[in-house]
Design a protein around this nucleic acid. Sequence first.
RNA 1: GGGGAAGUCGCAUAGUGGCAAUUGCAACAGACUGUAAAUCUGUCCUCUUCGGAGUUCAGUGGUUCGAGUCCACUCUUCCCCA
Length: 376
Amino acid sequence: MKFDIIGYDKRTNARAGIIHTDHGDIPTPIFMPVGTQGSVKAVHQRELREDVDAKIILGNTYHLYLRPGLDILRAAGGLHGLGGWERPLLTDSGGFQVFSLADNRRIKEEGCTFRSHIDGSKHLFTPERVMDIERVIGADIMMAFDECCPGESDYRYAKKAMELTHRWLDRCCQRFGETEPLYGYQQSLFPIVQGCKYADLRRQSAEYIAAKGADGNAIGGLAVGEPTETMYEMIEVVNAILPKDRPRYLMGVGTPANLLEGIERGVDMFDCVMPTRNGRNGLLFTPHGTINIKNKKWESCFEPIDPDSHAECDRVYSLAYLHHLIRAEEILGLQICSIHNLTFYLWLVGQARQHIMAGDFVEWKADILPELGRRV
RNA sequence: GGGGAAGUCGCAUAGUGGCAAUUGCAACAGACUGUAAAUCUGUCCUCUUCGGAGUUCAGUGGUUCGAGUCCACUCUUCCCCA
């Protein structure tokens, strides 16, 4: 994997670049749709390619390991082979599940034991095991196995979790270095900065992670309950340390405004369930704010969802029709909302990229940012 | 014409002497950040300074300290037999 920076914003830390992978190039800044179980929920691949124009999507190690399981994945030629997706993939390591499945797991030095949310069976995830699984899934970018601790964690716990994450990272790197890709193309390992909301821990963690010299680096453990301003401060602290010539990935973030603030602070990659999950729950993101399509006021609004959109469904279907579909619980409504939101997210980072290269990122951001948070 | 059953907050329901009254649906809002989410939460008779206050269970009258619940009549609906 190779990263070329093709443009800097002179007044901020924003930059535009290209990540080259064996499955194709990824322009940055980029938003990566989340496809936890090997599917971006409610969105066809053709729509992902042609409407959304997703350059890279995510899969999840924990979920794919439980189902369909490693034998099937290996036999299929990894997740690329199983799903027929030919563009780049990234797998999250299960570190987020350490956080979100807190009731079903126990963390030890060796690793983390999980109870499957599907059948209750017990499984042990060690850094080595996670590397092996991610090799089998075969994503272009593999994430290190980390402990993502809650935003309100106290200093002592946050420090402990960070130090464990570092020790686990050493083991991830070791195993990664000892193993080969299984399907004939390269894989990269991204380590993850932790440290919760504590600037000195974040600094310490960023230095530890930077020293690994990885192809790219991730910032984890944000947008997990801490105030938004704190998140922005932590991004600044960390990005001052992470290598400038490698992509920086802010994990699990976020709102459209979060993306622009992240880009301004030097983040290149984002992923978040928000466009898809909120879309399935009837919330549309637009350049002029959010729309709750379930609200009565859209009942007879026969305007297209977005006449200028790259996505066909935004031009063809009206807000009134979408309102009807969502109320009637028609599957098509979930599909349209998901495609719309992802298209908007990809449009937004694409615009950011263009304005970085055009030199007016600051002005553009100042214009659009107040709009994004509005309620239409 | 004869016999039987039933009327509860939009719809459907619970309720057999202490009830502003159960539950589901619908409606109206809100939440959602590396997905155990096509999920979850709130409101849902009227008014409210959110402490309460006022009117309710087809209608009228009655029994009772107290009635959606018991009694009488009236109205309405449904079923069965002619």
